[in-house]
Design a protein around this nucleic acid. Structure first.
Lengths: 179, 179
DNA sequence: GCACAAAAGCAAGTCGCTTTGCTTTAGGAT
DNA sequence: ATCCTAAAGCAAAGCGACTTGCTTTTGTGC
């Protein structure tokens, strides 16, 4: 029997907020007691719920990233991809978005199974491509979308190269002309 | 007055080895005393030389990555890029290479100045492109090389998607036909 | 070789992360 | 409204990371 509402939810949100704020403030290696203090929560509660700092940070990153940049349904593949990619670009130009992406990559253990979150994002993309194919449009593969659009944006953030406004649109155009 | 030879070099290498081995063994958050023990070195020496765990890991990653995949001089742009990209692919298919890339990204502080290592790699690439341009070949920009070839390889590693053999060659071809 | 000093090692002490057993609070079902 | 218990809070104890002053080793220039 689980109990997701009320106080539990408040504590979870406060702790997630504290994680993001501390990371954004440059307190990269703030440990659980520091995070708990900032959240106004007892450290023991954090230890009991998340177990380790890495598990907590991964949870915070996935939870927050999940709510960014859904794929719209505009009626054309180009519109769908543009809407999505511009959302990603916006998130990646934002300091918190950058922090969360870095935290996600950093805590992704190389040996564990793929994240449910990433799998779901890939399926969303596939759905949009299927709709376009059903309309008779020529469509790239999911891998090509990731290579052409997502990878360049992510690598810019992770290696601290600037993202100029309009980058996402240019990448989408490059993808669609290459296919 | 600095003293790079003999014992100092041995200690540095032993500590770098210990870092890579521990990371590869899944001991993601091994602290300095653990690393020092594995290296057969006194923890104090590590604290005095590197100061913090993050600085040590970044140093180990950059030092080891610096020696991978130089850009050859084959006489044609396609040959140069293929040689380089296949070296990158090889490194990224190797467990230690994956570990090092992830460690590098994880410890890259978002606020600090760009890494000398990355700047140098970009200049190497520019040099190869300039040579090709001088021969009259049509050449892409450095950014396009990074977008088309490096970014897809890196993102595959960081998000734990497999790299099929021949990926690098396919990416280089895609780049050269798109320009 | 010899002398100097940079770097490594040692030991002791401090600090803060983490664990654990218990108590208190407050969702949620009846 | 009341009860039940999941989840949060509290306190104390243990353990290990980190610091610091000093000693020992060993590159390196002469």
């Amino acid at each position: 029997m689980t109990r997701p509402g009320g106080r539990s939810a408040r504590v979870r949100d406060a702790v997630h907020d504290a994680v993001v704020e501390l990371l954004a403030a440059g307190e990269i290696d703030a440990a659980i007691p520091k995070i708990a203090e900032r959240a106004g929560v007892n450290p023991t509660s954090v230890y009991r719920r998340w177990g380790s700092r890495d598990a907590l940070i991964l949870d915070a990153a996935v939870t927050r990233l999940r709510s960014t940049s859904p794929i719209p349904d505009t009626g054309s593949l180009r519109g769908d991809l543009l809407g999505w990619a511009e959302g990603v670009e916006r998130a990646m130009r934002d300091r918190h978005g950058q922090i969360l992406l870095r935290a996600l990559v950093a805590t992704l253990n190389p040996d564990e199974k793929p994240l449910e979150y990433l799998r779901a994002r890939g399926e969303d993309l596939q759905t949009a491509l299927d709709k376009a194919a059903a309309r008779g449009e020529p469509v790239p593969s999911v891998d090509e979308v990731l290579d052409f659009v997502l990878a360049p944006l992510y690598v810019r953030v992770l290696f601290r190269r600037p993202i100029e406004p309009g980058t996402a649109a240019a990448l989408v155009d490059r993808l669609l002309t290459a296919c």
